[in-house]
Amino acid sequence: MAEAFFSPCPRGLETLLADELRSFGASGIQTLHGGVAWQGDWAACHRANLESRLATRVMWRVAQGRYRAEVDIYKLAYSVTWAKWFTPDDTIRIYVTAQKSPLKSLEFITLRVKDAVCDHFRTVSGKRPSVDTANPAVRIHLFLTADTATLYIDTSGEPLYKRGFKPAAVEAPLKENLAAGILRLSGWQPDEVLLDPMCGSGTFLIEAAMMALDIAPGLGRRFGFEKFRHHDRAGWAAVRKAAENRRQAPRRLAIHGSDIVGEWVRRSRVNLEAGGLADCVTLERADLLERVPPAAEGVMVTNPPYGVRIGEAEELAALYPKLGDALKQRWGGWRCYFFTADANLPKLIGLKASKRTPLFNGALECRLYEYRMVAGSNRRKEREETAGD
């Protein structure tokens, strides 16, 4: 029997996520703003949690109905057979989000849903679950539109971008599923050389190495569905075993990372070691303006500072023209991708972007700029053809 699910993701990656879910056996796919609605069996749900590089969560739809007032939402939440799926000994937390809802207080709605769930358990078992806002066993999500309420149980638990390692994160890290999406958008393939010259905590490097070795991103963690009363342990074990069997042994990959700040190179190394990937990636301390390419051709993907801290904007405004010069001088034959919220980068870098892809880093609107650097001989050929016209 097909169940209904919704998987949120970073805005801008919805189409890529739909393709990924389809590969897990999802059907009835509907791409929405900020995520994908889909249908599938529990094996597809297990695979999406374990193997999706792009989804933030996999939420199972358990009820939907029209509403006009708070009491309608209480009745809807009370009618759900919660006791079939978890026990009153399991802690809960309620999350409420809304778009164009006429109701005035989401905090009050959160309390009403909690009351409905607890009242359901009192009726069924004489005992109610406790609320745990820090580490709940069961996460219940309510989504409101102008007239429709939808209830979900989160099958993921912690967000799926939490891969289960990476202890040395630097300030303002890039979420892992957004980094994986940017790598997909770049078209990078594991047989191509990859470089992140501003590697920070190493998120691009780790995600790329996991892709190259076919390591399912959820192999190092647990999931919310494992606590469900109806959890299919044998089915889950089969899905997990299949992913473990596909996993390739660590080996040296054509993936390179560098940073001008030595401490960040060290942190990248710590994170790679935590993921068992330290021997797969070449790390070095280097300034992008001075370093040489690790190969004649390749893909550069990086997330430069956004200039949001005091003094950074002026520093970046001085950096961008120098960066453009360095790319023109030494990086012919490379596809270069810069992910940033700083609108000054395309204005000051002195290069024409061949593609600009809107993406969101949380609530922050960003762009992924693609610069295809022409190799020296091709550049000369272009100038000759232009002169002959």
Results as ranks from 00 to 15, higher is better:
Ala2Leu: 14
Pro8Thr: 09
Gly12Trp: 06
Leu16Arg: 14
Arg22Asn: 11
Ser27Ile: 07
Gly28Arg: 11
Ile29His: 11
Ala37Gly: 12
Ala44Val: 15
Ala44Gly: 05
Cys45Val: 10
His46Pro: 01
His46Cys: 13
Ala48Cys: 08
Glu51Thr: 01
Ser52Val: 01
Thr56Lys: 07
Val58Glu: 00
Ala63Lys: 08
Glu70Cys: 09
Val71Gly: 06
Asp72Ile: 11
Ala83Arg: 00
Asp89Ala: 15
Thr97Tyr: 05
Phe121Thr: 04
Val124Met: 11
Val124Arg: 13
Gly126Thr: 05
Ala134Thr: 11
Ala134Trp: 02
His141Thr: 08
Ala146Ser: 15
Thr148Ser: 07
Asp154His: 03
Asp154Thr: 03
Ser156Trp: 01
Ser156Lys: 02
Glu158Thr: 12
Pro159Thr: 02
Gly164Ile: 03
Ala172Tyr: 05
Pro173Leu: 10
Ala180Ser: 15
Ile182Gly: 07
Gly187Ala: 11
Gln189Asn: 04
Pro190Lys: 12
Pro197Leu: 08
Met198Trp: 12
Cys199Glu: 03
Thr203Asp: 14
Ala208Val: 03
Ala208Phe: 13
Asp214Lys: 13
Ile215Ala: 09
Gly218His: 10
Arg229His: 04
Ala234Ser: 12
Ala237Ser: 14
Lys241Cys: 05
Ala242Trp: 10
Ala243Asp: 00
Arg247Pro: 01
Arg252Met: 06
His256Trp: 15
Asp259Tyr: 12
Gly262Ile: 07
Trp264Val: 08
Val265Asp: 04
Arg267Tyr: 10
Arg269Gln: 13
Leu277Gly: 03
Ala278Glu: 15
Val281Gln: 05
Leu283Arg: 07
Asp287Asn: 15
Glu290Ser: 12
Pro294Trp: 09
Ala296His: 10
Thr302Tyr: 03
Arg309Val: 06
Gly311Pro: 01
Glu312Tyr: 09
Ala313Tyr: 02
Leu319Glu: 01
Lys322Trp: 00
Leu323Trp: 14
Gly324Phe: 10
Gly324Ile: 09
Asp325Gln: 10
Leu327Arg: 08
Arg330Trp: 07
Arg330Lys: 14
Gly332Cys: 13
Arg335Met: 02
Phe338Asp: 00
Ala343Trp: 08
Ala343Pro: 13
Asn344Ser: 15
Leu351Cys: 08
Arg356Thr: 13
Thr357Lys: 05
Phe360Ala: 08
Gly362Ala: 09
Leu364Ile: 15
Cys366Ser: 14
Tyr371Glu: 05
Tyr371Asn: 05
Gly376Phe: 06
Arg380Asp: 11
Lys381Asp: 14
Lys381Phe: 13
